[in-house]
Design a protein around this nucleic acid. Structure first.
Lengths: 338, 338
DNA sequence: CTAGCGTGTTGAACCGCTTCGACGAATCTT
DNA sequence: AAGATTCGTCGAAGCGGTTCAACACGCTAG
């Protein structure tokens, strides 16, 4: 491999000049720049990342801690990851992939100065990783919210508002008894931030809108979904509105309703909380609150980059939910009464 | 951050001694080692990754080039990724995530010495990345096979054998007319290695077993799957065996068959080529040829690590397919005839 | 008693880059 | 015309490790 000295020699300049050509941190005359660039080209020179990191204290790598385990909805995770990776490239950064449960990985990459910054996904209410990143010298941003986001940078869909919005939508359409088909039990057991926040919004709005709301955890499997639908309808037969916050279960929920001869969009209004493409890939286009996963990933990178240069204070950004009416929801029993 | 010199001072030894304690490349007396370790502990010392990479020409990072685009089956991709990441950790390596289409990323990470080795997924027959990695100074292994694997290290399920196995299984059960519901058209258009190899095996075995085989590309959507099933059955109404090589479409294929009152496991034998968990997550447990994605990811890392130390020659490893009979396949029309 | 050896430790060179202070030449002031 | 600026470039000092040759020490062997 060619080094910066080789390039300098070939261009008839000093190494520092080559460095300044590359970084643009000092003015270089046009002819010199041209000679250097030609030399770089000719030698196929690439700066050595390690040397650069050592000298500049910048690695141009960010760490992404993502849950690789099955169970969480993998395609959705991937949308976050895609957002992070592509946006990172816009800032000339690469992404080091860490798995969620490898807590020691945090120490390794921050302490070892392997990365400039961190993005962490799938935050739980009382997440053991949070104190670690808070103590790290690198800035970080969380996708999701811990119990106490004080002093941290976080970004996510405003799930609490989403819960309110979903209920408000159904209530306004005349549904008096609604239900949530929610995340798998394990997710709830871990107190995963988004699940709890949605439920909080749901319950508050139900109270405000004078609507009953029944909550059912739901495994993402076909049988899990069937079970959730069945127990739900057994316990609250009057239910006319269902909010589904579980991408994996969504198709199976719809299948089960079909099997029971319940026509979605007529007998039953269903509002999904999921990425747009998932909402559109169902048997009928779903009324949904969009989960803009890729956008959120992108924003996470924007935030962490902002903190990297310039001492932006930490901030929490909750994206306002947007509900799009499609064919899975309709007026309910009490429609027109008010 | 503490440096190696801080540790050395604290332990009353030289920096090189600390280094040798850490690497184990020279014998260090027990008491000295203990003092050094205590100092490391006390100072919370972490070697600087960049400095280490510069001095040792080793980064302890491998690059993983994975397709993040939607369309390929994301959960399956994730299984590969999981295998790679977890196995890499066993070798004390981290994983830098590159996206498939970022071809320049290859240059960047190899030329810049950001990684010690590469793993590339989703190889196409004539993949533009292959010449690049072949020219890199780092060893690499491909998950999948290019047209000409000469001189490269590759690992994958032996899809050609899988194709043969699937046909042989159906033929032996008395099915004379079988069909493939295969990958989405875009995947085929890219000449993705696994799709073509499966089809080759399929066709060869069909000839050998004197069985007709009809091939149908299939979009992973519900409508795509329905369409594939419908045109298939219209063109070859006598079909009694279907091989599905499309994880995303599989549930929808089964739904469509059900809608048409075709009972899988009785009127129609279906063999899936997919990960075990996918085969088991369908409405009935599928007879399947297992795609051991996580294993393959692991093996890829094993191979690349073997080449990293010791000049193991390049090799191609094709994992033998294993067919597990479950409830979706049964004897066909000609059963017992032979 | 000395030569020879193995063990444990060290000093110093080096890995390839960034960056700061300095400096010569050209341009601008006054 | 001399001093002050600006512009473009350079030399050298790190950044924080690894590794090699060398050396001090206590042994055994001759």
């Amino acid at each position: 491999m060619a080094t910066i000295d080789d390039v300098a020699k070939a261009a008839g300049v000093s190494a520092s000049t080559v460095s300044y050509v590359l970084s643009g941190k000092r003015p270089i005359s046009a002819p010199t720049r041209a000679r250097v660039e030609r030399a770089i080209e000719k030698l196929g020179y690439r700066p050595h990342a390690g040397a650069r990191a050592l000298a500049s204290a910048r690695t141009n790598v960010i760490a992404l801690m993502a849950p690789l385990r099955v169970g969480v909805n993998v395609p959705v995770i991937m949308q976050f990851v895609t957002g992070v990776v592509t946006r990172a490239r816009d800032f000339d950064h690469d992404v080091l992939l860490l798995t969620q449960d490898d807590v020691s990985g945090l120490d390794r990459v921050t302490g070892g100065s392997m990365v400039d910054a961190l993005v962490m996904m799938d935050i739980e209410a009382d997440d053991p990783r949070v104190p670690l990143v808070a103590a790290a010298k690198q800035p970080s941003v969380l996708i999701g919210l811990p119990e106490d986001p004080e002093g941290l940078s976080c970004v996510d869909l405003d799930f609490e508002a989403a819960g309110r919005l979903a209920v408000r939508h159904l209530a306004a359409a005349g549904h008096a008894d609604v239900a949530l088909v929610g995340s798998p039990p394990e997710v709830l057991r871990r107190h995963t931030s988004y699940a709890e926040r949605l439920m909080r919004g749901l319950r508050n709005q139900a109270r405000a809108s004078d609507v009953t709301v029944r909550v059912e955890a739901c495994d993402s499997s076909p049988s899990g979904a069937s079970e959730a639908v069945d127990t739900l309808l057994a316990a609250a037969p009057g239910t006319t509105g269902i909010i589904v916050h579980n991408e994996g279960a969504l198709p199976h929920v719809l299948s089960r309703l079909a099997e029971r001869d319940i026509v979605v969009g007529e007998d039953m209004s269903v509002v999904a909380v999921c990425p747009r493409d998932v909402a559109l890939a169902q048997r009928i286009p779903m009324t949904s609150i969009d989960l803009p996963a890729e956008d959120i990933g992108r924003v996470a990178v924007d935030m962490v980059m902002a903190r990297l240069d310039g001492e932006h204070p930490s901030e929490t950004r909750l994206l306002a939910p947007v509900l799009t009416e499609r064919e899975s929801s309709a007026p309910g029993p009490a429609a027109g009464d008010g």
